Amino acid sequence: MKHAINRRFRTAVSGRRNRLALASAAVLAAAASTGGVLASTGSAEVSEPSTVAVAEVGTPASGAPGTTGEPGEPGTAGSAAPGTTAPGTTAPESAAAETTAPATPAQPASPEQTSPAVKAAKAAPARTTEPPAPPESKLLDYEFQAQINGWYCGPAATRIALTVRDERPSQDAVAGALGTTTSGTNSAEDTTRVLNDLIGTDFYRTTAIPGGAATPAQMDRLQADVVHAVTSGYAVVVNIAGSATDLDGGWHSYPGGHYLTVVGYRDDGRTVKIADPAIPGADSTYWLSTIDLANWAATRGYSS
């Protein structure tokens, strides 16, 4: 009798333990499927049990009641809801691929950009049009007027040059601008300044020939300057001193200095036409070689 009671008691206790174990296994399985975490009082978080552990705990003991997997019975491994996804899981790679914008294909270069002819045209320097060669000879239109006194050669020669540009001031007005006195006009620097001021230009420049005789380079420079000025429509005013003989044999002597005007050239500038205000007359001109004119202007200079 005592032994029978003890077996019933052990059976009841064993059955109660099995039901508690199965209930615990069900709770653990539910936590594993929902991502929940069990915690015991005073202990750290309990890590999720593996599916294998749940399966082992949920395996029914031989002869234990309540482990048949019947509906409503806790503790079976299949009691968790199928298809449940734990929250916080990473989205599948296919979704990320769908939200990524496709790369824009590189645009091919247009034929115009890659054409060798276009590249060569861009690389080639811009063509510049060369100015036409000056004429072999040229004469300017001017108004001649002889100097009105012995010291007005500077104003008279400057006025002749001004008339080429349609400026016709009086000799007195030009003398006042030049600063001319009874001793004459100081230098070609003055004639350059007044020509630019009264015409309203910056064309004129002063060229000095400081030596007692012109060098070949200075002769060439005078020839080129005369051609450039006359071709551009400007007369040249020269400050000379000494004597020179023109191409017709006329002799001209100004030992104290003098001003005269070049109003034309021929033979590519090797010969120049002189309008000399010291000679009375309607048009007192003569032809002179550029070499002789350069030597005549030695120690002085000219405005061109």
Rank of each mutant, 00 (worst) to 15 (best):
V238C: 02
T245S: 00
L162A: 04
V262G: 09
G212Y: 07
T245L: 03
T41H: 11
S24Y: 13
S14G: 14
Q223A: 06
I279V: 14
A120E: 14
S170H: 05
S232F: 03
G78E: 08
A297W: 00
A213L: 06
A86Y: 03
E189C: 15
V52P: 08
S43N: 11
Q147D: 03
E136H: 01
A229Q: 03
S232K: 06
A97N: 04
V164A: 14
A294G: 10
T201C: 01
I209G: 04
G176F: 10
S243A: 07
T51R: 09
T215R: 02
T89I: 11
E189V: 15
N149Q: 05
E167S: 11
R159S: 13
Y204R: 11
A86E: 07
L198H: 03
A126H: 08
A31F: 08
G78D: 09
V272R: 13
S62Y: 13
G242R: 02
D267M: 13
P92K: 01
A29T: 05
R7M: 08
P49H: 09
S43P: 05
S303I: 07
A77P: 15
Q113S: 10
A30H: 10
Y254G: 09
G154A: 03
G250L: 04
G15C: 09
L20D: 10
W296M: 01
H252D: 00
A103P: 15
A80G: 11
T180K: 14
W151I: 00
G42T: 06
P132Q: 14
A282S: 15
H252C: 00
G269I: 11
R168G: 10
Q218K: 05
T114H: 02
D276N: 12
T290E: 14
K2S: 11
S115Y: 03
Y234G: 02
S253Q: 06
S303E: 11
P131L: 13
V230Q: 11
A96P: 07
P116E: 07
G88P: 12
P87G: 03
T285R: 14
P210E: 01
S243M: 03
G75L: 03
R127Q: 12
D190L: 12
R16A: 15
T163F: 04
F9P: 01
T206M: 12
L222H: 02
D267A: 15
T90W: 04
E70A: 10
A30E: 08
G184H: 04
W251P: 01
K273G: 10
V238I: 06
T180Q: 15
A44L: 01
A157M: 05
V118N: 08
G264D: 08
T59L: 13
P210W: 01
E56N: 13
T215N: 01
A146N: 07
R127P: 10
P210T: 07
L38T: 12
A53K: 09
V237C: 03
E45D: 10
G179D: 00
L195Q: 11
R165N: 07
